[in-house]
Nucleic acid binder design. Structure first.
Lengths: 213, 213
DNA sequence: ATGGGCACTATTGTATGCAATCTACTCAAG
DNA sequence: CTTGAGTAGATTGCATACAATAGTGCCCAT
């Protein structure tokens, strides 16, 4: 463990994104320090960073909690994501290399396999694959400013995206979108990719904002 | 001074944005601690926050410097801003109240006055007014997610926006855009406002990216 | 019984000291 | 004269100790 603060941030981020630490959970400095076997100083720094990523809510003198979002907030964040991510995809497509397409293709294929109804269905596995799929696209856009702006909104999406919530038809659409995105990228058609990403996000939003949650 | 870290962050942010601490300047923890009469701990926290806002570059074991941007980075950041700020303006217009229009109007009017050639011209005063003008619009959009995403890019713009660099015609246009934005807001025409904001940013970008800098 | 106030505990915010790392300079060898 | 290793100083990263604040429960008065 080279740098305690880095390591703490990494570890916490991972645990929050994977759901091991649930949304709204209290993050006491002393407890985390004990758990990671470091002092409170790097823990504070890690929490500060995660707060800037939007993963953690930090209230003065009252400590940190894993961030939660209300319905309205979720709507606003999705609006932002709808603005940024299709843009990122459009930027990414012209830069995509063959090996990137292969990687995206594999992710999309695996997601479709895990999503297919039946005894091999594994909806939990989808979250991580989905995260990597979108993350790779954003990375390929090669625009640090946009990537930074997207970090928060994608985190929010990851935490709140539960494929168990998807209606069967919405799930099928979502997985098909990924495949279609790869096809658009392979064809080098940035506008196609942008369009399907927009549709993909609208589909996701419809699921996430449906009902009362 | 209630909270040292807050105060340190506020003070540093102010000094960086106003140019008192120039871009690229080294920010030694011990020196800052001495200057603000606090220990290094809250200074470190303040620097960490400013780094998350994009105002400060933080390198492990090598300390903090006021952030600088290369030409390509500036271009990318402006692209993001072009995406976000017109959107924010479009969201803001329907929510704007009469008093907000009055405030915006005054800012735009004062800017035009300070910008008018002659002995009363004061280009330095424009930076702060401009910052408040754009900041108010963003605030009125009432979308924390977008506001957060915009914070970094506007900071960058503020630091690099030097009205002394503007060619006379570009300056006239820029100030006229502000006035027109107020007119569009007063008319309740969100699309008009969005369009003129886009033009405004293109005009600014042309100045900032011109030449070799 | 209930509500308010107060003390106590738990937790965060800040200061300080020590360890690890980097920077700059010296000095010697080629 | 240049280059490189080595070392001393400065600076950051982390740990620990202390101060300040918020949360909790108890006691007492009404």
């Amino acid at each position: 463990m080279r740098y305690a603060a880095d390591e703490a941030a990494r570890s916490l981020r991972e645990q929050i994104l994977s759901g091991q630490i649930p949304a709204g959970a209290r993050l006491g400095e002393a407890e985390l320090a004990g758990r990671l076997a470091v002092s409170r100083t790097p823990i504070r720094e890690a929490l500060s960073r995660l707060a800037s990523e939007g993963l953690v809510d930090l209230q003065p003198n009252r400590g940190a909690r894993v961030a939660t979002w209300g319905r309205e907030e979720l709507r606003e964040i999705f609006e932002l994501r709808l603005l940024l991510e299709p843009f990122a995809v459009r930027q990414a497509v012209p830069r995509i290399k063959a090996e990137d397409i292969a990687a995206l293709d594999e992710l999309a294929t695996r997601m479709r396999r895990f999503g297919r109804p039946g005894q091999h269905q594994d909806l939990s596995a989808l979250v991580d694959l989905n995260r990597r799929f979108h993350g790779l696209f954003i990375e390929l856009a090669d625009n640090p400013a946009v990537a930074a702006a997207l970090r928060t909104v994608t985190h929010v999406a990851i935490i709140n995206q539960n494929y168990h919530d998807y209606a069967p038809d919405a799930l099928v659409r979502s997985l098909a979108h990924h495949v279609e995105l790869v096809a658009a990228a392979r064809a080098g058609d940035a506008e196609w990719a942008e369009a399907i990403m927009r549709a993909h996000l609208f589909n996701a939003r419809a699921t996430m904002l449906r009902g009362e949650r």
